[in-house]
Nucleic acid binder design. Structure first.
Length: 567
RNA sequence: GGUCCCGUGGCUUAGCCAGGAUAUAGCACCGGGCUUCUAACCCGGGGGUCGAGGGUUCAAAUCCCUCCGGGAUCGCCA
């Protein structure tokens, strides 16, 4: 809704500027506390025309012609600013569109295919609290992109043949595998033991290297052993992801690209760029033209491939199937992803768009699967849900255990997801149990509660025979400040969704969702709905509550957070 | 040592890329609000040299430089 308004503002202001002889220009439109949208274009024109910005703004405001069928009410010059206000039609149309379009409201304005890859943690153990930052950012971005209209395919790239997996495979032959545990946790146990063993007895490293060579050369027995190891970990990882509402369309194995011959073909393509040379038996690429000082190894001296090389083949394949390829990667991949893009560019392939997030560490230092220093996602969920159960018990003691457990799960996972997604990815964070288990802050439960509150009002009104969702209502009687503010906030949905999608920044939308809940709560406190004396008011307010319910549910869905009807 | 990211009230954080109207919100703190649609809520208050110092500009949290602090990374790991 806001996107249309913004577009109209752009056209109307540009028309005025053209008729004044200023020509079209970037309007520097920005949200403002003084208007529904404001333009700083007068500053820009001032330096260009060597005139007073205040005078320019005034001239534009005077010249502006607002068509009758637009969503604009007025364009006013306040000093050098142009403040634009939306009219009543804008508000009324917002309400009726939400009721009409329901879960499609505010989306569906882009098209094309995108392949997004996220999580892709090595199958050498369970997901830890650092990995799920990747999952939450990736999954939320996926939901945002889907909602704006893209056809999104979600990939998990499974490292099923690297050194780590060779160590896991070797470990399974050395140590007992605890089948009573969740398989990814049991894999971590043997992996950690194996690493300690290899450190104590470096001569055994050769056995691991032997496995890597065998798997690369296509030895069936070894491949089977690797697959078994990977299978255990991936099964557990998928379960964890599902628990947090994260699903992937495809689990793509690295080894596929070796066995299909794609990797050796890519190596030849890289060779043909003339950027390569042999250094100590390894094949290296010179990427100085792309700003990388050091060259990159794309083939080991023993002829086996590396993660990087297999990843190039994978990206070539992805690039052939979609207009856009997006990867969510941790800060440790900053350099390598730049090199990956450079090589793809050098061989004339589509480059991916990379979203980097900074690390999550523990108070005692960085996490490490190898050293067994990590907090698993499963452990976090268990603790959080336990704490959420306590909170539900406090508030709804009369409800059955089943209800409390369900709500605790929805609230717990929601809280974890929201806490992760609300902060911008470039901030590194330190995991803190106290904070993770704190439900008193305005996070997911706050938004979920607003949704439940809206549902509860509607349910009660229905019970009392006061509400029929099919009723035609008159939104123009919604004149209270908090009503207008709520409608305007809901109208912003498409704008924030669009911005998050364009900038690949899910935290922008997460913050909007909280503000939306805030607007609804303020309306709830100030304006009586069921007890409104006037029937027209009551019906319109019930419709407004229904709108809030719909938009809050859409927002929660976009964040991958459950929207309980009662909590 | 080189490169990249971050540094905003006691704590967490938005805004920075595209410089402009009193710097955003939460937690914590202080005060007020449940006989009224679920108080996981709402209203009000105190608290900020936007890491430090220079520069550019009519205007800098935002752009440039230097420094300090934290994180990441720097060929045969992924």
């Amino acid at each position: 809704m806001f996107l249309e308004f913004k577009q109209q503002v752009t056209l109307i202001l540009n028309d005025a500027m053209e008729s004044l002889g200023y020509g079209k220009d970037d309007l520097n439109l920005e949200p403002s506390q003084h208007a529904d949208i404001a333009s700083r274009v007068a500053f820009r024109l001032a330096s260009k025309l060597k005139q007073n910005p205040k005078d320019i703004a005034e001239k534009i405001a005077k010249t502006v012609a607002i068509p009758n069928d637009s969503y604009l009410d007025s364009v006013e010059a306040v000093g050098p600013y142009l403040n634009v206000r939306a009219n009543r039609r804008y508000l009324d149309e917002t309400v009726s569109r939400i009721r009409h379009e329901t879960d499609g409201f505010g989306g569906g304005f882009c098209e094309g295919k995108i392949i997004i890859e996220h999580t892709s943690a090595n199958p050498n153990g369970p997901l830890h609290v650092g990995h799920i930052r990747n999952s939450v950012i990736g999954d939320t971005l996926t939901r945002i992109l889907k909602r704006v209209g893209y056809n999104v395919e979600i990939h998990y790239y499974v490292n099923d043949m690297g050194r780590q997996i060779a160590i896991v495979s070797w470990a399974l032959s050395q140590f007992e595998f605890d089948t009573s545990k969740k398989p990814d946790h049991a894999i971590a146990d043997v992996y950690i033991r194996a690493n300690a063993e290899l450190e104590a007895h470096p001569e055994k490293v050769a056995e691991v290297e032997r496995l890597m060579q065998l798997v690369e050369s296509g030895d069936d027995k070894t491949i089977e052993r690797f697959d078994r190891a990977v299978g255990f970990a991936v099964t557990g990882i998928r379960k964890t992801l599902l628990h947090m509402n994260v699903v992937h369309d495809k689990f793509v194995n690295e080894s596929d690209f070796v066995r299909s011959g794609a990797v050796s073909r890519i190596v030849n393509e890289i060779r043909s760029t003339g950027l390569t040379k042999i250094d100590n038996g390894a094949l290296v690429v010179n990427l100085q033209d792309y700003g990388f000082e050091k060259s990159l190894v794309v083939q080991r001296s023993d002829g086996t491939s590396l993660y990087t090389t297999r990843d190039i083949a994978y990206h070539e394949w992805k690039g052939e199937q979609a207009e856009r390829v997006i990867d969510i990667l941790g800060a440790d991949h900053k350099l390598i992803s730049g090199q990956l893009k450079a090589i793809l560019n050098a061989i004339g392939k589509n480059e991916p768009e990379i979203v980097i997030f900074e690390f999550v560490s523990l108070p005692e230092g960085s996490m490490s699967t190898r050293r067994g220093k990590f907090i698993t996602a499963d452990e976090l969920f268990e603790q959080v849900e336990e704490q959420a159960f306590v909170e539900v018990e406090k508030r709804r003691p009369e409800m059955p255990d089943k209800f409390k457990k369900e709500v605790a799960a929805i609230v717990g996972i929601g809280a974890v997801r929201y806490d992760i997604v609300k902060v911008s990815p470039e901030k590194s964070t330190v995991f803190n149990w106290k904070e993770a288990l704190d439900f008193e802050k305005q996070g997911a439960p706050f938004i979920q509660y607003s949704h439940a509150r809206a549902c509860s009002i509607l349910a009660k009104a229905k019970d009392e025979g006061l509400w029929n969702p099919a009723t035609t209502v008159d939104p123009s009687v919604l004149l209270e400040d908090s009503e207008v503010a709520l409608i305007k906030k809901m109208a912003q949905f498409d704008n924030l969704l669009d911005q998050s999608a364009r900038e690949l920044k899910p935290h922008i939308f997460a913050i909007y969702a909280r503000e939306l809940a805030d607007s609804f709560n303020q309306f709830y406190r100030f304006v009586p709905v069921i007890s409104a004396e006037d029937e027209t008011d009551r019906n319109s307010r019930l419709a407004l509550v229904d709108c809030a319910r719909i938009v809050l549910a859409n927002a929660l869905d976009t964040l991958g957070i459950g929207a309980p009807e009662s909590m």
